[in-house]
Amino acid sequence: MGSTQRNVTAALTAALLWAFAFPAPAAVKPASELLLVTGRYSLFGLCGLYVLCRGRRQLRLMPMRRILFGLYIGFVGYFVFYICVSYSATMGSGFITAVIVGSSPITIAVAGNFAEKRMSWSELVAPVLLILSGLTLLSAVDFIHEGPSDRAHDSLLGILLAIMAMLTWSYFVVRNAQSQRTWETKPDPKIWAALVAMGAGGASMVLLPFAIATTPEETFSPYPLFKIIAWCVFLGVIGSWWGTYIWVKAAQGIPVPLVGPLLATETIFGAIMSLPAERRTPTWTEVGGALFILAGIAVYMAFDVKNSRSRGDGAGAEQKPDASDVPAAT
């Protein structure tokens, strides 16, 4: 029991570290979103490069197609994903972005059900309808309070980017899980995590000079510069790399029914932390939309836990594919 409590605490710690990604774009202003993304993942990629250098013997044993695939899903699942999150959070709201991205378990379930049916399609109807109701309500927030305006249109574009982030992350999780199951021999988790990190880091290193060149000059004043560097170090090294390590270690001892809810806390933490960064409180419309989405996730998890028990899945079978099969973090 004590071991389980320690693992749950560790998993919550990892979720909290990952959640800082949502308030970060507002917190680093006037730095650009691109500078935050490229700075964060350049450091994340350097962590991956260090691991690959130490494990070069294992890396040489991997087929080139697997190495390229690892780099590819790292680019899509991390770099492209966080580009969408960052611009969504600043054009709309980090709170709304976190809530929408938090609905990804439903899109993952729908996509995964086509490849490997885990539950009846009828069981997904209620969660999907609740999620869609929540997204509709969140999309109408600024139109309800302000009417058609540039701010409202920016917010709507921010929501579309958040949906893109949700779909991108879902694609990453499903493709990664499918590939791991089809390979006869799984790659070493540390080496695979490092490849994924390099996929995100490689693109970031290429674009970092452009991000610096297009960043507003006031960013390079002492305090804004310190702020963006501190956030990049925290997100890239502490959040992405160490948060992943903490999760992977903890996930090995977490009972199946707890894994989904623990992962869901990441976006809950992110939504809560985004509000102080934006210096506001949520509107009732936002609260209503968030509750619809949380209800949809809860209904889905209830069905998933029931199906897991009926199949007699072993502990850890329902771990997030990028955290059990492959160390990863948002």
Rank of each mutant, 00 (worst) to 15 (best):
R40P: 01
A295Q: 00
A126E: 03
K117H: 07
C47R: 05
G70F: 05
K190D: 11
Q178C: 13
T90G: 06
S3A: 09
K306Q: 12
M64D: 13
L36T: 14
A211D: 12
L16V: 00
V28N: 00
I246A: 13
L156R: 08
L195I: 01
C53K: 09
I67L: 13
L258S: 10
L46P: 01
T215G: 14
F220G: 04
F292N: 00
P282E: 12
P23M: 12
T136V: 12
T185L: 08
L294C: 05
A328M: 15
L12R: 09
E217W: 00
G243T: 04
V110R: 03
I83F: 00
L135A: 05
Y245I: 11
F75A: 10
Y82D: 14
P282L: 11
G70Q: 10
A323H: 00
V85L: 05
V326R: 03
G316F: 11
G239V: 02
T215I: 12
W242R: 05
T265M: 15
G112P: 06
R40H: 03
M119D: 03
S86I: 02
A213H: 15
P222S: 15
S149T: 06
C84N: 11
F143C: 11
S179L: 10
M91I: 09
F226K: 04
A152S: 15
Y82E: 15
W242C: 10
F269N: 11
